[in-house]
């Protein structure tokens, strides 16, 4: 079967390398160091008091449904910038199978133009 050494080999890409085992060893050691440092800190807190409630600048907490920020509201600043292209692409996905086949015909035509026509011209 596989020799033991091959387990330790570094992945060479010709431009760089990556050895997960070294990283994992480093992570484990760093984790131990950090856990020791963290161990100096205070561990407990008063459970069930008002300090465990969500901080809302003193406002009362809404019901849980409204406290959860829904998926489509995430990444506002980002989608703000990309909205134009997302809307464009959404329009492309009509969900109509005729359009899918039309895309196929278009791509065939493009490939046809790019592969066959230039050779014919030469």
């Amino acid at each position: 079967m596989l020799p033991f050494e091959s387990l330790l080999k570094t992945l060479q890409t010709g431009s760089g390398f990556w050895n997960p085992l070294v990283w994992i060893v480093a992570i484990i050691v760093a984790l131990l160091v950090v856990l020791i440092i963290r161990g100096f800190g205070k561990k407990d807190y008063k459970k069930g008091t008002s300090q465990t409630q969500a901080f809302l600048s003193g406002n009362p907490e809404y019901d849980k449904e409204r406290m959860h920020i829904k998926g489509s509201n995430v990444y506002w600043g980002f989608s703000e910038i990309l909205n134009w292209i997302i809307n464009l692409l959404k329009k492309m996905h009509t969900g109509n199978v005729s359009d899918y086949v039309l895309w196929f015909v278009i791509i065939i035509a493009i490939l046809f133009l790019s592969i066959i026509i230039p050779a014919g011209a030469i």
Partner: peptide, 12 residues
């Protein structure tokens, strides 16, 4: 985003 909106957040 999926991690947040499906798994994290307050208990519904």
């Amino acid at each position: 985003k999926v991690l947040h909106s499906a798994f994290l957040g307050p208990a519904l």
